[in-house]
Design a protein around this nucleic acid. Structure first.
Lengths: 186, 186
DNA sequence: GTCTATACGAAGATAGAC
DNA sequence: GTCTATCTTCGTATAGAC
């Protein structure tokens, strides 16, 4: 509490975790305060505009981590199948092996959607395009590559929902294991 | 407002729509009041335990409609592919062509999850079993049938999330169009 | 940079009139 | 069965001390 003050990055990561668990409207300042160990007023010191500022910081943190890890795995030098394995590994890390939710889900519900849906949609399109590019590199025809890329993102999102509903991460882990084959064809 | 009093069924349907749009915690009594046209106290007359009662009523309404329409389509007399087409049509109706969310999503986030996740998981297992049964009838081996059934539910859920994030129902509609082939094999 | 104190409206819930 | 009034707690936000 005293000497080990949290860096802003650590604070944002804890805020992000609370948003993923409770959703935008469910993540009250009280819960965000508990999650960070900071008083409500301290949160306002770091995020003057309150909750929306915190959600924006969470969005930025996810965007940065995604770019440096998930998208970076797709842009590697190895063979397509190998890059997709690395990509799936980074996704599994990002989603805590299927136990954590995606902001593309929780930030597109209710009033948060009005603020974040568009930005989330743009990011999702970037991811679909990156996946389609890899399929193209493997010889898949353009239209088919786009469909498979979209289906891959659909399966990532769907397996997270099904895993959460069933209380069992197996559907997500299976989706990650099959991801390279799903995109490149079997 | 005066002569055309809402039936309980109509009230519950409006409450359900509000939960699907705003999520459990986002659907405040004020929003539920607006959605139904009833004052907050009138809501308590119909649902004495408040919001949780309303959410339970919404869950029951969905369960009944799903059983009588969606699951009934799967249990029909026609050929498997034909039943799956009917099933996909009922799903499209239920999800408003991909514009409405699923309670399996919004009721498994945050504090609602503690109350509803288990029941939702049970229902999802029933659906997966019903889909696997149809695949079995078409000659698909048991283990493969279960995997395809799970993948089908994953795709339904994922396509709803992706459609919502992109602001475009095309991914959901494509999932519905391909549903029979996805389950029975191509 | 974090705390205590405080304000204010929203949210959830209840009592009782009509 | 719906309304007005009321109550309490929670959620958001700010001021100012340390």
């Amino acid at each position: 509490m005293s000497t080990a003050a949290l860096t802003r990055e650590e604070i944002v990561l804890r805020i992000l975790a609370a948003f993923r668990e409770f959703g935008y409207e469910g993540a009250s300042l009280g819960r965000l305060s508990s999650a960070t160990g900071l008083g409500r007023s301290s949160l306002y010191h770091h995020f003057p505009k309150g909750k929306e500022d915190m959600a924006n910081a969470a969005m930025s943190a996810v965007g940065a981590w995604f770019g440096e890890n998930v998208l970076a795995a797709l842009a590697g030098e190895q063979a397509p199948a190998r890059r997709l394995e690395n990509f799936a590994g980074k996704l599994a890390e990002f989603y805590h092996q299927g136990e954590a939710s995606c902001l593309s889900d929780v930030f597109t519900i209710g009033e948060a959607g009005a603020v974040f849906q568009q930005r989330i949609g743009e990011r999702m399109k970037v991811l679909i395009a990156a996946l389609a590019k890899i399929a193209r590199e493997s010889g898949v025809e353009q239209g088919e590559a786009l469909r498979r890329a979209e289906d891959t993102v659909v399966r990532i999102q769907g397996s997270l929902i099904v895993s959460r509903a069933l209380g069992d991460t197996a559907p997500f882990l299976r989706a990650m294991a099959q991801l390279p084959r799903q995109l490149l064809g079997e």
